[in-house]
Design a protein around this nucleic acid. Structure first.
Length: 329
DNA sequence: AACATTTGACCGATT
DNA sequence: GAATCGGTCAAATGT
């Protein structure tokens, strides 16, 4: 018997921390100065009213999104001039794509580790763990004929029940597991999945528990689906799947700096700040704390709700989805 | 019987 | 050239 379920709500926001107008080399690398931080809205938000903060945050988010987009273009341009590509975060979701990779030949059999594994490359400074983030990069997959094919690699971190050993991340697509491996730098095994529509769909994903936090799993998607997301019951996006599945509706904010995860399902807590590399500057931590404040979160939620309800396409789709869930009368 | 998952073996890349 | 590692294959097993 099919009962009505909660409609999935999963918002992945990919916004960067504010960048300066004329990026210096250091800033191009994602670093921020104290002046940047001091002038950021987060540092002042606490002293203003919620309404003011809300408005300001909205404006700032727009600005930051624009910055992020420019940064994306810039980094993409930089990497396009190099022999390998690994460029900017791009906060799009997984859209069905018809052009990405050749349907008949999945991801190249072997790729360099540099481009293959964006999480830990195995070199000396690789202990960066970007837990809680949603990151998407394009990498070039070398083909046997010497050319390269660009594929999208997206990393998503999700919180799941620590006792759940299945490493199943429900993301709306159907997957077939084809392997599992214990890797050197993580005691928990890494599971390999292929899209159930393979070989026509070239997408693969790797899922592995975080070494530091066993309640977090890191899923790495390679390629883009060339088919629509299946809509059968039970295949809900990870953030909304209930019943022991991955739970949180989380928003990750990252731009080469620390990762901030806002778990909107929790009251008061649910905020996690993870340094992307080494130790974060104290000021940065302060900003992160302020970003994690109830005021900021409330403003964020308010803005998202406004954006979504103001989007005609979204409301139409939502209405259609609700109607589908209702029994026929 | 059919399909999905598990798991050891294998392969190619890297060190 | 050997050791190591990550990724994949495919037979065995489970549902």
């Amino acid at each position: 018997m099919e009962t009505a379920r909660w409609s999935p709500v999963c918002l992945d926001l990919m916004v960067g921390l504010p960048m300066v107008r004329e990026p210096s080399p250091a800033r191009r690398a994602g670093m921020r100065t104290q002046a940047d931080i001091a002038s950021s809205p987060c540092g002042r938000a606490a002293s203003m009213t919620n309404g003011e903060a809300s408005k300001m945050m909205e404006a700032k988010f727009t600005e930051v999104s624009e910055e992020n987009r420019r940064l994306t273009e810039m980094i993409g341009y930089l990497y396009a001039n190099q022999s390998f590509a690994r460029h900017s975060p791009e906060g799009d979701g997984e859209q069905p794509a018809s052009t990405a990779a050749s349907p008949t030949s999945p991801v190249g059999k072997k790729r360099s580790r540099e481009s293959m594994d964006t999480s830990d490359s195995g070199d000396g400074n690789s202990d960066k763990k970007m837990t809680g983030m949603v990151e998407a990069v394009d990498v070039e997959s070398p083909l046997s004929n010497g050319t390269c094919r660009r594929i999208k690699v997206k990393r998503v971190c999700t919180r799941i029940d620590p006792s759940d050993t299945s490493l199943v991340v429900k993301d709306g697509y159907q997957w077939r597991k084809y392997g599992q491996k214990v890797t050197r730098d993580n005691p928990s095994p890494r599971a390999y999945f292929r899209c159930a529509f393979a070989p026509s769909c070239p997408v693969k994903k790797k899922v592995q528990r975080s070494a530091e936090d066993s309640s977090m799993v890191e899923a790495t998607y390679e390629g883009e689906h060339n088919h629509p997301r299946p809509t059968r019951a039970g295949e809900l996006p990870s953030c909304a799947a209930g019943g022991g599945g991955p739970v949180p509706c989380s928003i990750s904010i990252n731009s080469s700096g620390p990762t901030i995860t806002l778990d909107l399902t929790k009251d008061g807590g649910g905020v996690q700040v993870v340094e992307a590399a080494g130790e974060a500057q104290p000021d940065l931590k302060k900003v992160c704390r302020e970003v994690a404040s109830p005021e900021f979160r409330a403003a964020l939620v308010e803005q998202m709700a406004r954006e979504l309800t103001g989007d005609r396409k979204f409301t139409d789709a939502l209405a259609a989805a609700i109607l589908r869930k209702l029994p026929d009368y």
